[in-house]
Design a protein around this nucleic acid. Structure first.
Length: 103
DNA sequence: CTACACACTCGTCAGAGAGT
DNA sequence: ACTCTCTGACGAGTGTGTAG
């Protein structure tokens, strides 16, 4: 997994996860540390993979809901445009009626 | 056919906010 | 203080249309 985004290093009593900056990015690496006592490297790896998986699923769900929302809005636009058209026609008919009565 | 531009999708990161 | 979820932003990969 290290090839993907980062790598682990151990310094003193701390296990450090160093995120490798993207090839073109200006940002420095971010350091996330966890005490060696509670977070074994293997356990940390597991935790990270679990977090990535959950986040991946969250992003997918988010995008699905966004699509749904946009579709909903588009439907609403269509309905309102139809209503508007109908009202304009109705208004026109009433105006005609009124004009003929006035004559 | 190739090279390029543009649009779209996906995974990931970082940060905010809520819950414990 | 710590953990978890949600979400905007970003970069990489891929598909598609178009000019040369």
């Amino acid at each position: 997994w290290a090839a993907a985004t980062g790598q682990y290093t151990t310094t003193g009593d701390m296990t450090i996860y160093q995120i490798r900056a993207p090839a073109t990015a200006l940002s420095q690496g971010v350091v996330m540390a966890a005490s060696l006592g509670s977070l074994h490297t293997e356990e940390a790896t597991c935790k990270r993979e679990l977090r990535l998986m959950k986040n991946r699923e969250a992003a997918q769900e988010r995008r699905r809901k966004k699509k749904e929302y946009v579709k909903c809005l588009e439907n609403r636009v269509a309905v309102l445009e139809n209503q508007n058209k109908t009202l304009i026609e109705e208004l026109k008919a009433l105006k005609d009626l009124y004009c003929h009565k006035a004559e």
